[in-house]
Amino acid sequence: MKVTKEEVAYIAKLSNLMLTPEQAEKQAEEFSNILNHFDTINQENLTGIEMYSFEDEPLRLRKDEAIPFKNSDELYANTKSMQETAIKIPKVVE
């Protein structure tokens, strides 16, 4: 399967990533090789197989209880810019 650099650029956009035109070209070639290999799966007979099967491990639910985090200062220590308990980002609404 051949992937074009325009398609790669579009996928990059969907992934919130930026590519230079040279990178997009290189990625298009690598993508084509990888997707060619992925085509092996098209030769498999997959009729009659159900996609999901939960029979082995039934869904377990726990009580919806809030557990306060004991040290909120540590929790926020990894944040780059804070104002009280809010994380600062550029304005999203004018």
Partner: peptide, 29 residues
């Protein structure tokens, strides 16, 4: 970045059936 993009690609509209769904069926197999 390559893996994120590959993942985005196989889940995107038009390719989900061709790749992700088949891979999940093969997983059962």
């Amino acid at each position: 970045k390559r893996r994120i993009m590959l993942g985005t690609y196989v889940l995107s509209s038009g390719y989900y059936e061709a790749y992700y769904k088949k891979a999940m069926l093969f997983r059962q197999k």
